[in-house]
Design a protein around this nucleic acid. Structure first.
Lengths: 250, 250
DNA sequence: TGGTTTTGAATGTTTTTGATTGCATTTATG
DNA sequence: CATAAATGCAATCAAAAACATTCAAAACCA
């Protein structure tokens, strides 16, 4: 049996059981104990697993959860500035949609104590919204494991019953000719649906997103106002031609 | 059994019962007392738990979580017994609905690693379901602040797109002539809706709920099988006449 | 074929484990 | 309330399991 095959088997077992014993791998693969040990050492060096006495364990969910927080901390100042600007657009009595995402998440502190109705598809946002006593509706849908966003037919279906004064969307890419994009087609569909239900639409996109592109298309630029911290006139001008842009200083 | 596996078990037990005895862990893991003591010391040093005489207790977080957990801790053994029985009724491949509630919450550990589709209206349940890698759909709806249950038109509307092999409901009251009841009319409506969408329906009601009554009527007894720990024949017989009852010993 | 890589066995060392001991704390009992 | 019994505890130790390392045979490649 080839080395890559063994490695594959080891990682599969880990995925399935979180933890794996050397003896089991010996039986499973027919290789000797020494070989398996070597495999584990290599995979550990490649950061694919963690060796423990008697076998190996996967690098845990905690690290995955941690990476969510790390992600939320990236460009935090920009995100906060954009979020603050976005929140300032909201009028009392508005019914708004807050997209799942790390930038929209930063809007929540600015919603506290205001007379609003909020709908979101982000379970993570919900936690903080309820803590801030903002009355909140959740869309239904399938729970995307990595981000806890609600997606799929369940999400679009339950959205149909709402109408929004304003919606605030996060995206992965903003591009002059390709418009707003995001990697996950199912998420794209949710965002599209929200756009059709909203009187006014805002996309929160920090400078790193501009001129970027990812797999699934959401909508052309003119369908939403862009809120960004990009202030380089050269990079900004193509967007100014195509849609409304609010620039925040960061 | 590998050390990380034991640690995982210990932390799971803690999560579930708030507190855990060394003897129980010895039985649960098959390891010796010494080993478990060592594990507890390590986990304490890693700030994962607090050792106490005879075992360990978890480090509590926010006061709000604490109050929710306290409620979940009431009649915990009864709830676990009922939940275990309920989970044993589930077949591989089933699509099930799990109602928001502290008893249904206890079913989650028994769902781990099974081939199921789960729909719930309990945001609190969702957290643990995703942690246990159970693919989960959330109903939409208004987020009821106290319990984080999803209710209202949003919930019933998004439920319409699903059909369930089985549903598991919690209730506040079970009464021979008035059937199943709950205080909140909006929650009652959700439960009613779920009943109409399920092939088989089960209500989890510990002995304290029997012969009790609360404001909103959900459904008559015959609409669902009752799972309870009540075993006093006098108190039980009126129910046996009207519906299927599964009694668990607690 | 000659050289390189991979493998499995053998070695001595390290880690983990469970039993035992004596001490401390809790609980039961007079 | 005081004493005894029971239970829980940390420390120690020897056995077992797992470990890294070394080396020669086998497999692979040019």
């Amino acid at each position: 049996m080839l080395t890559p095959t063994r490695h594959e088997i080891i990682l599969e077992q880990l995925e399935r059981y979180q933890t794996v014993k050397i003896q089991d791998l010996v039986n499973e693969t027919g290789a000797s104990e020494s070989t398996i040990r070597r495999d584990l050492s290599q995979l550990e060096k490649a950061n694919k697993l963690k060796r423990v006495h008697g076998g190996a364990s996967c690098l845990h969910q905690t690290s995955e959860e941690l990476s969510i927080r790390e992600k939320a901390a990236q460009n935090l100042n920009e995100k906060v500035a954009i979020a603050k600007e976005a929140a300032s657009l909201i009028r009392d009595g508005d019914c708004i949609f807050l997209d799942a995402g790390t930038t929209t998440y930063q809007m929540i502190p600015y919603l506290k104590g205001r007379n609003l109705t909020v709908v979101t598809n982000g379970v993570t946002l919900l936690e903080d919204l309820t803590e801030n006593q903002v009355p909140t509706y959740l869309t239904g849908g399938f729970v995307k494991h990595k981000t806890r966003a609600l997606i799929g037919r369940g999400a679009t279906h339950s959205l149909q019953q709402y109408r929004f004064d304003k919606c605030f969307l996060g995206v992965n890419g903003v591009h002059p000719s390709h418009g707003y994009t995001t990697p996950d087609p199912e998420e794209a569909l949710v965002k599209q649906t929200v756009l059709t239900l909203s009187q006014e639409a805002f996309v929160l996109g920090d400078a790193s997103k501009l001129n970027e592109l990812s797999f699934s298309s959401i909508a052309p630029l003119q369908d939403a106002t862009l809120i960004t911290n990009e202030n380089d006139p050269d990079r900004l001008s193509p967007y100014l031609e195509k849609t409304n842009v609010k620039v925040v200083s960061s």
